[in-house]
């Protein structure tokens, strides 16, 4: 039986290197490229009619746009407008990576901690820089909550600083762990079903149970795929809001 985590193995499809770094084109890279192509094609084809009264596809594309636009508007405000294209790209990229991972024999790029951590650390550093540029040294008042009693300052500031620097970790691990756990669980139940079916007799009939569980879990995984894309995006909006408006 295959290991349930074997599905996450990186396989080199085409070897490449740059300045001594290994930048081979892998299955992970292939599905990142596919996520970009599929999402762009979907949105471009859906918006092709550009009708005043939209059809089904166009409505779906517009709903995605308005969903992210509302998210930015309500969480960041009007100052978030310049960052809307980035946040929209982030949502679409994570959503399509998650959903493409649900196809059989495909690869889930967001189940790689390095991919989610690269995105989360990028967001963390960028948001911090935006805050520093906008507020200067006043940005550090972010770590001092208003109205806290003075004697507690050292403790509170320590907690605030730690919780701030944990952000990229929690943001990346949340997405990575959800994808890892979901896909591993599907493989575990699938392996169980195959094992029970191979055993014969009453156990073979019982293999129906893990099979039914897979059906339920697949539905759940689709929900998780969309939900985690949303959570990743809305947390980015909140971090951006903190940087732009402090407390």
């Amino acid at each position: 039986m295959h290991s349930p985590v074997k599905q996450f193995t990186i396989e080199v499809l085409y070897e490449l290197s740059l300045f001594g770094f290994d930048i081979s084109f892998t299955n992970s890279a292939l599905f990142m490229v596919l996520a970009v192509i599929v999402s762009t094609l979907f949105l471009a084809v859906a918006m092709r009619p550009a009708a005043v009264v939209p059809g089904r596809l166009q409505s779906a594309a517009e709903m995605m746009y308005e969903f992210v636009a509302d998210m930015v508007r309500s969480n960041v405000g009007s100052e978030g407008r310049p960052y809307f294209p980035f946040i929209f790209t982030l949502f679409v990229f994570v959503l399509f990576s998650n959903l493409l991972g649900m196809l059989p024999y495909s690869y889930t790029t967001t189940s790689q901690i390095i991919v989610t951590f690269a995105m989360a650390s990028f967001i963390f550093v960028a948001v911090t820089l935006i805050g520093l540029i906008k507020h200067g040294l006043h940005f550090f008042s972010f770590f001092v909550p208003a109205g806290a009693p003075k004697p507690l300052y050292p403790l509170i500031i320590l907690i605030e600083v730690v919780s701030y620097f944990v952000r990229p970790v929690s943001l990346s691990v949340r997405l990575f762990a959800n994808m890892l756990a979901g896909h591993t669980m599907l493989k575990v139940f699938a392996g169980l079903a195959v094992m029970m079916a191979g055993a014969g007799g009453v156990t073979a009939a019982g293999s129906l149970l893990p099979l039914l569980a897979i059906i339920g879990l697949t539905g759940l995984e689709f929900l998780v795929a969309a939900l985690q894309a949303y959570v990743f995006t809305i947390l980015t909006c909140m971090y951006l809001n903190d940087a732009l408006h402090l407390h």
Binding site: I10, F21, D22, S24, S28, M32, V33, V36, F93, T109
Partner: peptide, 13 residues
């Protein structure tokens, strides 16, 4: 596997 993943993430994103 990390360098190639980061490289392709930056390119595709």
């Amino acid at each position: 596997t990390w360098p190639t993943q980061i490289f392709w993430l930056i390119v595709t994103f």
